[in-house]
Design a protein around this nucleic acid. Structure first.
Lengths: 243, 243
DNA sequence: ACAAAAGTGTTATCAGTACACCCATGC
DNA sequence: GCATGGGTGTACTGATAACACTTTTGT
């Protein structure tokens, strides 16, 4: 089977990263720019995405797209929804853009989100002009990609309450306060520091290291790591009905 | 835009219903049967599904498919995953079957599940030979549809813990014990009746009616209903981090 | 010595869990 | 009158929530 693009099928990837300095949850977007002789026709940002090839799985497709953008593989990935409204690519700007690409007008996209460590991504000389944007300060966005981003964000909010995926967004070694800041950024809430510390430190899969922060200009904090092994052994399925 | 099938895109619907008598969570499947002169070529069950039309949304597509099978509209519906492995339709039996249909070999299906009241479905003279099967006693199933069913079931298990979707599976008027039985069927667990009653009756959106069961051969139970209005007004988003 | 962020304890309240018997009804 | 499923109360335990000050470090 020859490797051919499926013209009415794509994957789009919402790439989330967390910046521990600015304490903001960011999305990685690529630039879309097109001008004629006298005017700028398209100038905005979109998700990274591409056609699915006829001989690859949807998951592989998303993995490939992420790799082309960031060079990274083996990142946390979740297929969260398919978007396929007949009019999803029919804004005037999008129509102009599509003329230059091999897209079918009616394309269904399988949307994924990725969670990764901002520090792992090097955007110097990125061939797509990729840039991080805070989830709360998105630029002008093309296609229906803003909707896709917001639905990914909703899914992330729900999922981070019940699964330890938050650690995918943090460095391997982190402080308790960094975890708290991250929860606060994602959920948009305030959390009591004392209660949060106690709760987190009591988890067996949160391991205190023999290390403290270095290079900080104030009191350096204790570092911790997350152990997926221990977490998995704990069978953390509890059937708490809380509807 | 003329209404045309998109040959490499379909929706498949996992239809869940609950039988309060047998206390089993059921899935509605349709018969697949094909024979040559001398042998039976295909004889199993599959999900109901169909191509997406080029001028309809994915949601509309699923709604249409459900309506053709059951006559019902306005049922609870959730798009939960896309399935698109290149080899998902390539079992020998499936290849024989596909010859008779207009399917592309590489078809991506957008999978939905529906929750409805078994009593609302009339299977007499159903043109697809549809039949209910307990989720724990599925027959031989074609394509990759068993996988799709099991993933729908997993999603349902998780979702019923945090959202009141369980009532979509029950009659409008139900007893506390019916709700308990349903949770037990879905989750495969035992629940303490006294604790469960207290918890449920204390919810403001569970309303005791001025009615009891009729036509039962033992002590008739108090009937209750679920109020979506009250539930919605309660803003039940609580940010309990329980990972 | 000072600024900044790290780190620490107690109490009150609520929710979950475990557990065994009586009651109302239809037959 | 009896079999069947419906319905009830209490005590224990663990988790959450509210709340303010001291400590450590780098500069």
């Amino acid at each position: 089977m020859k490797s051919e693009k499926i013209l009415n099928l794509s994957v789009d990837c919402v790439v989330f990263g967390y910046d521990t300095n600015t304490k903001s949850l960011n999305v990685l977007l690529i630039k879309r720019f097109l001008e004629s002789e006298k005017e700028i026709l398209v100038d905005d940002y979109v998700l990274t995405g591409y056609h699915v090839y006829n001989n690859e799985t949807l998951d592989d497709s998303a993995t490939r797209v992420l790799k082309e953008l960031t060079g990274l593989t083996n990142q946390y990935k979740k297929q969260f929804k398919a978007f396929g409204n007949p009019d999803r690519l029919t804004n005037p700007k999008d129509l102009i853009w599509i003329e230059n690409e091999e897209f079918n007008l009616r394309t269904v996209t399988i949307a994924y989100y990725f969670l990764l460590k901002t520090e792992d991504v090097d955007l110097k000389d990125n061939k797509f002009d990729a840039k991080w944007f805070p989830i709360n300060a998105l630029p002008e966005i093309g296609f229906d990609h803003e909707k896709i981003i917001l639905e990914a964000y909703e899914d992330l909010k729900v999922k981070c309450l019940s699964e330890p995926i938050i650690f995918k967004l943090l460095p391997d070694k982190f402080t308790i306060n960094e975890v708290q800041d991250l929860y606060q950024s994602i959920l948009g809430i305030e959390i009591d520091n004392r209660n949060f510390r106690r709760k987190l430190i009591n988890k067996k899969y949160i391991i205190a290291l023999d290390e403290k922060q270095v290079g900080v200009s104030k009191k350096p904090a204790q570092l911790y790591m997350f152990s997926m092994d221990i977490y998995n052994k704990m069978f953390s399925k509890n059937y708490l009905i809380s509807m």
